[in-house]
Design a binder for these strands. Structure first.
Lengths: 244, 244
DNA sequence: CGCACGCTTGACTTACATCAAAAGCCGTGG
DNA sequence: CCACGGCTTTTGATGTAAGTCAAGCGTGCG
């Protein structure tokens, strides 16, 4: 087992060579602990570093002029953070920790080195950036065209699926680790309405709740109600450049 | 001037070498004409090819179970299309032409070659994919947290700015080339409500309209109302691998 | 010419927001 | 160990932005 979280994630899709492993370990040489609630990078500030998230749950969000917040994405162990901020002089989004986290900061130059020396890894960075793109378009469609209930259901399904990516043993029960306010900021709803939607899902026997833990009782029906597609399946990587 | 649309777009950000130019021309060796309304690639179908859009206006969209449509993105000359579809066995989105278009199809293998032999171009593909990512998150925030009027205003501003990227002479007047239904499908609104918002923007002297042409009368106020940020500025490319 | 499609406008409905208040829960300090 | 203050969660009453339905109009095109 490698010392790199990112490598571990890549290993699910391709077989890494020894050299590739070594290269990826360079991304995670340094470590930094981030307290729950702390901000790793603030919107409109410069000097964006890149990170690999090693442990914990984070989110990225933007604030609008009226003070409202839109959560753009939840971040899980193995995810690479701050690529978009690295491309801009000023970060387009804030990165904040939802639980105590461990991140590995690395320099943009290291990414450049990686792209120069390891085309296949460069291609994989592009692949993940496309997976994320598709996840964003799914959410865009959800916000633009689906009901409040569907959006909440989709969020529950997606969180569970992404948690499961790091913890295979995870079944239908999990603690979502978000306040209803945060669920609202992710789905474009108010906390009050999120509460009502959760209760409705509960009444319809689609989920159960007790003390912050959620159980998905009827995953099939939930996915139907949410227009949900699991985007972590169905990839095609046959075209990648050869290793080495 | 190069024969490649994509190269032309890249040239705005970096100075391409002779060899890089040659490489990019390979992406646009073949040409295909696409009629207004025609579909280049359909959601959930396989065999996704990649394209560079050379001429015209296209869009990508998804259809939901209830038949409603969410337009994800408008595509302009110089844009690379179908990267996300190339990563999946089945295309996650439909590509359709809003006007008569010319596209240049190329194989995923060509992209792999490019990434292997030209790290700097590979990095630029990643950069554009991040610019697009940020554009999507801006739209996500708009759909989740802003009013109908703001969303319509943001769409008008963005269309004008992106049109101007291909035609520098474009000022404040342009024909948007979209039906109000399409504007609605992009902003998560109904055609009827789009109409009302346009009229309101007109009444407030923010825009003027006549026969499909729109004039932005007060760009500053419009941007403020829309929470709009132009994402085609403020890039930082100092970290790119060296050419060659 | 006439038909289809897009635009416009009005009347009415509805999903979600807002406002408000009470009750649980959780860490902190006396 | 308990009391307190500050978050969350929950629920009800009311408001409103945007959707739905419907009809009339202009216009380009077969």
């Amino acid at each position: 087992m490698s010392g790199s979280c990112f490598a571990e994630k890549l290993s699910e899709l391709i077989d890494l060579t020894e050299v590739e492993h070594k290269t990826l370990e360079k991304l995670e040489e340094r470590q930094r602990h981030v307290r729950r609630g702390a901000v790793l990078q603030r919107e409109n500030e410069g000097g964006g570093e890149l990170y690999v998230l090693r442990k914990g749950l984070m989110m990225s969000y933007v604030l609008l002029h009226d003070g409202s917040r839109q959560i753009l994405r939840f971040l899980f162990p193995g995810d690479m953070l701050g690529i978009s901020s690295a491309v801009y002089q000023e970060a387009p989004e804030t990165l904040a920790a939802l639980s105590d986290c461990v991140v590995c900061p690395f320099d943009r130059g290291v990414l450049a080195d990686l792209m120069r020396e390891h085309p296949r890894l460069a291609a994989m960075v592009l692949v993940y950036s496309q997976i994320e793109r598709v996840a964003l378009t799914d959410r865009l469609a959800a916000l633009g065209r689906t009901s409040a209930k569907a959006r909440v259901a989709a969020l529950l399904l997606d969180l569970r699926n992404r948690l499961r990516a790091t913890d295979k043993s995870l079944a239908n029960v999990f603690s979502l680790g978000l306040t209803q306010e945060e669920v609202g900021d992710a789905t474009g709803l108010t906390a009050v309405h999120v509460n009502r939607m959760l209760r409705q899902l509960e009444e319809e026997q689609l989920i159960a709740r007790e003390g912050g833990r959620v159980t998905l009782l009827d995953e099939r029906a939930l996915a139907r109600a949410a227009n949900y597609v699991n985007r972590y399946e169905g990839l095609d990587l046959g075209w990648l450049p050869k290793a080495g």
